[in-house]
């Protein structure tokens, strides 16, 4: 089952900056993909297009069976509730506690408070932050904030997980731990698309590798057991 499909997609920003150039690909349910490439290759734009944070300049994108160019504004929130996103700059609510930052996803889904508490404790334990429930994001280190962002992305067991450089602020051991969390949620059926330029991590974890360069898909292969 296709979760994400790009048909000749191009994204051009102001000033004629080509971020994605004629991309066509398909990502299946349960895929574990890395989107890699040098800085400015278009990795972040690729993820933003999937989240409908940006619209393609040309071509069509289908995500979870919906054509994003034709998705009505009113349906965007509902669409995004199926996607967990770990942003490069974390995008945490600085005026809310760690607990509230993670719980907000469940609150807007109308989950009961008992369940909210249960799930938030569980996910924060998974990312090793159960003792920081009442802290505020600015009180945490970059790595800890990253883990809060990951917890928020995974809390509602989304159909698709998008992560933009999720291990950029973490040490190698913690990076592997976080990847293991992604792998475990992927084993439960979540399709994962992770943008990173960490080649060593890709080699260690394995999965489908989509290589971008100046907006073009230049390679698309799979690594299993450290081998192409």
């Amino acid at each position: 089952m296709e979760m994400i499909k790009f048909f000749n997609v191009a994204k051009v920003y102001e000033g004629n900056n080509l971020a994605i150039d004629n991309a066509t690909l398909s990502i299946e349910k349960g895929d574990f993909c890395f989107v890699t490439g040098p800085s400015g290759a278009g990795k972040s734009t690729f993820l933003k297009l999937i989240l409908r944070q940006e619209l393609p300049t040309k071509g069509q994108i289908l995500v979870l069976g919906r054509n994003l160019s034709k998705l009505p504004m009113a349906q965007i929130p509902d669409f995004r509730r199926n996607i967990g996103f770990v942003f490069q700059d974390f995008k945490l609510l600085n005026r809310k506690t760690i607990y509230e930052n993670v719980a907000i996803v469940l609150q807007i889904l109308g989950t009961s408070f008992r369940e909210q508490r249960l799930h938030v404790f569980e996910i924060l334990r998974k990312v090793g932050l159960q003792h920081k429930l009442k802290s505020f994001p600015p009180m945490l280190s970059g790595g800890e904030q990253q883990r809060v962002a990951i917890a928020r992305a995974l809390i509602n067991k989304p159909a698709i997980l998008l992560a933009d450089e999720p291990t950029g602020n973490l040490d190698p051991d913690l990076s592997l731990e976080i990847m293991e969390i992604f792998k475990s949620i992927n084993r439960q059926g979540t399709t994962a698309v992770i943008a990173t330029h960490d080649k060593e991590l890709i080699r260690l974890i394995g999965g489908r590798i989509i290589c971008l360069d100046r907006g073009q898909i230049v390679d698309d292969y799979t690594i299993v057991g450290g081998k192409k």
């Binding site: 995004r80 907000i104 807007i108 928020r152």
Partner: peptide, 16 residues
């Protein structure tokens, strides 16, 4: 502004 953007990105409806 940032708070509003984050809420939008996690799927909050406009009334939220």
């Amino acid at each position: 502004k940032d708070e509003i953007e984050i809420l939008r990105l996690v799927g909050a409806s406009s009334y939220y």
